[in-house]
Computed example of a mutant assay.
Amino acid sequence: MMRRSIPVFLSLISLFVTPHVCASISLSATRVIFDGSRKEANITVRNGSQTVLVQSWIDSDQGDNTSLPFAITPPLARVVANQQQLLRILYEGSGMPSDKESVVWLNVQEIPQTSLSEANILQLAVRQRVKVFFRPPDLPGEAAQAPAQLKWKLQKEGGQTLLTVNNPGNYHVSLADLEVGKTDKAERVISATMIAPGEHRTFTLKVPLQSVSSPLSFASINDYGALQKFEVTLNFQEMSSATPAEVKEQQ
């Protein structure tokens, strides 16, 4: 009897409380490049239609976020409609690797303000999350050259065709639209991923390749959010590097 009453109870709640999701804010960039020779990096939060509270914090994918040597100011700010707020990301000066680029995440969450007339509206906080690329001072190499320095290899193992990529450089490479094979029969390996400095990654192709060599294409997202196309001619058991194809703005 209790189980039957639960759906009825939830239906009654929905008559009085209307869920309302509002994304009022936008960020001035899709990523933050933190120059380690400077004390801070900035990003702007733009507000649109209504007054909101903006809560910001830094975290990582490792789980232990209390030890990250970064701070956000202001961590909580009230931003009125059609105004903007500058967020400053501060670095303590130590605590991050000095021999390679690191990535942490900036979280910006908007909390809509509720008026008395909206008492029966359930408003949900909307969070945006962008990467912060921390680059130590005097780091060798250039981030723009990192995609072309990736090393690719095809190999057969147990009846499967494996695609391996190695990033020998000091910078992360953000990949998109990774495809193997000729244009009319290309296999989408992955839509988006990121290869860290020194990382080896292996993908299993769904369709085994029969030819000795095969074309590979991918796009890499640069510091400005633009997509740069690269092409590689793959050969079994041989390491291959990419060459740039074209550049276009990310949509």
Rank of each mutant, 00 (worst) to 15 (best):
D223Y: 06
D177E: 13
M194D: 13
T202G: 02
G158E: 01
E179S: 14
G181C: 08
S214R: 01
R201I: 13
T161K: 00
I195R: 02
L162E: 01
A192W: 07
N222H: 01
A196S: 13
L175G: 07
S211Q: 09
F218P: 07
Y171E: 05
A186G: 05
S174F: 14
L216H: 05
L162P: 00
L163Y: 02
T193R: 03
N167W: 08
R201W: 14
I190G: 00
K229D: 15
A219N: 14
G169H: 08
G169F: 00
K206V: 11
T161W: 02
N166E: 10
T164Q: 07
L178I: 10
T202W: 02
Q160R: 13
E199I: 06
S191G: 10
S220N: 02
P215C: 06
Y224L: 13
R188S: 11
K206N: 10
A176K: 09
G181V: 05
H200K: 12
A219V: 08
P208A: 01
G225Q: 10
Q160G: 06
F218D: 03
G169S: 09
E179A: 13
R201A: 04
N167L: 02
V212D: 13
A196Y: 12
V180P: 06
G159W: 03
D184H: 11
S191E: 12
S214Q: 04
Q228G: 07
A196H: 11
E187Y: 03
S220A: 12
R188F: 07
S211D: 11
M194K: 15
P215W: 06
N222V: 01
K156P: 08
Q160V: 05
D184L: 13
N170P: 03
P215V: 08
G169K: 06
D177Y: 12
G181W: 10
T164L: 05
A196F: 11
T202C: 02
S191N: 11
S217T: 15
V173K: 00
A196V: 10
A226M: 15
A196E: 12
A176P: 03
L216Q: 03
F203P: 12
L216M: 10
E187K: 06
D184G: 01
T193H: 04
L162G: 00
I190H: 03
V165R: 00
V189L: 02
A186H: 05
L162V: 02
Q160Y: 08
G198R: 05
H172D: 08
S213Y: 04
H200F: 14
H200G: 01
A192G: 04
K229V: 13
E199D: 04
G198C: 09
D184T: 15
A192L: 07
S211R: 06
S213I: 02
V180H: 01
S213A: 07
H172P: 09
N170S: 07
L205E: 06
I221W: 00
K185Y: 10
K182W: 14
F218E: 03
V189H: 00
V189W: 05
V189Q: 00
L175M: 08
S191Q: 12
T164G: 06
T183W: 08
H200M: 12
K206T: 10
Y171L: 04
P208G: 02
N170Q: 09
I190C: 05
E187V: 07
E179C: 14
S213R: 03
R201T: 14
P208V: 07
T204E: 09
T183S: 09
L175F: 15
V212F: 06
Q228R: 14
T164A: 04
Y171T: 01
S220Y: 06
F203E: 06
M194C: 12
Q160W: 07
S214C: 05
Y171C: 03
E157T: 11
A192F: 08
